[in-house]
């Protein structure tokens, strides 16, 4: 698995799906580029304008709480985000990240150790994050779901499992 090197966008605890991808768009916005432009609209108006490929979102506890809407995971992926690191994730958000093929990494030290804007390096194979504060280890994804992630998300994984894609 690749290394992800990007700048840190730092947020707090309990960031909910409504501020990541507002409910009013859930039935009217489906185009990936448009979804990327909405990402974090009610949390941080600068995010979508300035996010660059492989940038990394870091947060405190319970990231992605609230709705089941998977657009809240996909919009970050479409915006180019390389990974999301949080002290904990809501279960629905965590599932949606795996299903979108977006790394969702649980790190007990998040987000305190990170400095907004700093460049960090995530090694998915080694399970490490290198930042200014040092080298930190995150637990691997559960064995049973790592295949979904490695196949690029749930839909490609399902096509492969059904023998539609070899």
């Amino acid at each position: 698995m690749a290394k992800i090197v990007g700048r840190v966008w730092k947020y707090g605890d309990d960031v909910n799906t409504d501020v990541i991808f507002p409910g009013k768009y859930t039935y009217t916005v489906t185009d990936p580029a448009e979804m990327a432009r909405i990402a974090m609209e009610d949390l941080d108006a600068d995010f979508a304008k300035n996010v660059q490929p492989d940038d990394i979102v870091v947060a405190g506890k319970n990231f992605g709480c609230g709705s089941s809407r998977e657009q809240a995971a996909f919009c970050l992926k479409y915006a180019g985000v390389g990974a999301v690191v949080a002290r904990s994730f809501s279960r629905l958000y965590f599932r949606n990240c795996i299903n979108a093929g977006l790394p969702a990494l649980t790190l007990p030290e998040s987000a305190d150790i990170f400095v907004a804007g700093e460049r960090i390096e995530i090694d998915l194979s080694a399970g490490t994050i290198q930042c200014q504060a040092g080298l930190f280890h995150f637990p691997p994804l559960p064995e049973a779901v790592i295949g979904i992630f490695n196949d690029g998300g749930l839909i490609p994984h399902t096509r492969k499992a059904l023998g539609i894609d070899s």
Partner: peptide, 14 residues
């Protein structure tokens, strides 16, 4: 429990 849209699409399929 709640699930995501892609997961429901897979339940439709499998």
């Amino acid at each position: 429990t709640g699930i995501g849209r892609s997961e429901m699409a897979v339940i439709f399929a499998t």
